Amino acid sequence: MDRLSALLDRFRVRASLFHTGALCGVQTFDAIPGRGFLHVLRQGEMEVRHPGAAGSASMVLTEPTLLFYPRALRHEFINPPVGGSDFTCAALDFDGGERNPIVQSLPPVVRVPLAAVDGLRPALDLLFAEADQVRCGSRLLADRLFEVVLIQLLRWILDQPSAVGVTSGLVMGLSDPRLARALVALHQSPYEEWNLEQMAAIAGMSRSAFAAAFKAATGTTPAAYLTDWRLSLAASMLRSGRSVKLIAAELGFASASSLSKAFRQRMGASPRVWLAANP
């Protein structure tokens, strides 16, 4: 079962390589709304700090590591003034920004040793080969390879969410094979008139068992999740220039007014007002 494709088809992520090589002294990465980062520590040791972030203690990295920041979080790399650690880094832009379902379901920072992710080395070898040389198309290819690395990391997280501190939300739901079947169906067909009985049948569970397991894993009810998924899609479609009427029809709302009402309740503003503030 493919748990990621429907998500990434609807909410794409774009990687942009911006550094490869040694980092010396103090390097600061500012928090920019909608911007994430994926850093690959290739060799060396260093300290990572998160100034002003409540409960985010500093970290000391002593082995090749992936550092994934799915959303805006200011962070600093502390290296010696000379002979710093060797890094390859990319900025990440997620469709939907902070409302991207993947972004919402992950902790502010994910730290994973490279050796922990099976099958990652071939993609990293290709990434480093392109990032370290100036050849035709190397920057574009490095960007795409960073996206491959991110997908491999997300696969790994879905298989062991507790390893990165995930305890509830979409990732926990997708980590349960029964719930994942229902979630994938919702992601693929948000326009269907889903009810609890249909979702439970796809999961192969009774209605009561499905509702309880879904709430325990994701922190919300199946109906509320479906509404949030539709509204996240609606927000993304609004930004692409689609009309409220067409979006309502495509996502299974009874009318444009019913979409506007649900949007206002969840987002705190009408689609038109929200779009003006989030162009």
Rank of each mutant, 00 (worst) to 15 (best):
L246H: 10
S175M: 05
L114R: 08
R49L: 11
Q188G: 14
D125K: 08
P80W: 12
L150W: 04
A212T: 13
R111E: 12
C24H: 15
R74E: 14
R239Y: 00
Q152N: 09
S85A: 15
A53Y: 08
G44L: 07
T28C: 14
R3A: 12
S175A: 15
R181C: 10
F210M: 09
E98P: 03
L150D: 00
R207P: 04
D2K: 13
A200Y: 01
P271G: 04
M205P: 02
H75W: 10
S16G: 12
I32G: 00
M172Q: 14
E130H: 11
S5R: 15
A180W: 05
L153H: 05
L140Y: 12
G52W: 12
G84A: 05
F263D: 02
L141K: 13
V117E: 02
E63Q: 15
A53I: 11
P70T: 09
S240G: 07
L251M: 07
G173M: 08
P33E: 14
S255K: 06
S258G: 04
M237R: 13
K261E: 11
M267R: 08
A72K: 08
A91N: 06
A213K: 09
R71W: 07
M267E: 11
D159W: 03
M199C: 15
S206N: 08
R181E: 10
R121A: 15
L120M: 13
F94K: 02
M46S: 05
L259I: 05
G34K: 04
R135D: 05
T218Y: 02
R242V: 06
F11M: 06
S56W: 10
V149A: 03
N278Y: 00
A31W: 00
V60M: 10
F128K: 03
E45K: 13
L179R: 05
A129Q: 09
A276E: 00
P81Y: 13
P80F: 11
T28V: 15
P122K: 08
L196T: 11
W229N: 07
E47G: 05
S232Q: 10
E98S: 11
S260K: 06
A234L: 03
Q104P: 04
W156H: 04
A269R: 01
L126Y: 08
G21R: 10
A142S: 15
R135G: 14
G204T: 03
S232E: 05
A211Y: 07
P161V: 06
A123H: 08
L141P: 00
A248G: 09
W194A: 05
E45Q: 15
V40T: 02
A262M: 02
L186W: 05
